[in-house]
Design a protein around this nucleic acid. Structure first.
Length: 187
DNA sequence: ACGAGGATGCTCT
DNA sequence: GAGCATCCTCGTC
């Protein structure tokens, strides 16, 4: 993939985020490879964004967001689930894109096994990480180096839908959730 | 399809 | 001690 298209992207995260739709996330943990097509993301704009975990500056948890482009920020949500972000700012700019949903492309059997059910495999941030086997120990790893890798070509699709972000209580009006409406989610 | 309610444990104030 | 960038189950329509 052309990482320069993203690393050299000078614009704000809310313009970068929709470019990730249609790209793919892949892991190859035992017992085998798994891959999803990203169809739902949200932008979080660091110090510009009261809803961002980085709004109040660096803490032990959010340190990865202050690193270079392509690092993963993985955090535990509601004490139970893992959620993954792709860091989109340069060093010191804690902007990130939360990956909220994907459509299974490969290793669906493995993902269904990890999820413990045959539907709704990756149509939510906690479900997606569980399906791919992503967890807290991948916080701070790079999507360019793995083991969680980003594949495909970034680009704006014609069918992107923008809407308010889910599950937040601050800056609720910003339409920074981006989805591909095509086909039923995750299943 | 949709909504309410509960589980759960970590992070930061 | 409050507040979660959530998911599941079970109810209703």
């Amino acid at each position: 993939m052309s990482r320069e298209l993203l690393t050299d992207f000078g614009g704000p995260v809310e313009e970068l985020a929709p470019l990730l739709l249609g790209m793919r996330l892949r892991t190859e943990f035992p017992p085998g490879p798994t891959e999803v097509l990203i169809n739902e993301v949200e932008a979080y704009a660091g110090p510009r964004d009261p809803a961002s975990h980085a709004y109040r500056g660096r803490t032990p948890r959010n340190g990865s967001m202050f690193g270079v482009w392509g690092l993963l920020y993985v955090y535990r949500s509601y004490g139970v689930h893992w959620c993954m972000n792709i860091v989109t700012g340069g060093e010191g700019d804690p902007s990130a894109v939360l990956v909220r949903g994907g459509v299974p492309l490969a290793g669906e059997k493995i993902m269904v096994e990890r999820r413990g059910r045959s539907t709704h495999t990756a149509d939510g941030p906690g479900k997606l990480t569980q399906a791919l086997g992503v967890a807290g120990d991948h916080d701070g790893t790079s999507v360019f180096e793995g083991p969680v890798v980003l594949l495909g070509e970034p680009g704006l699709r014609h069918d992107v839908v923008a809407s308010p972000r889910i599950g937040i209580s601050k800056a609720v009006e910003r339409p920074w959730r981006f989805t591909l409406p095509t086909q039923a989610q995750g299943s």
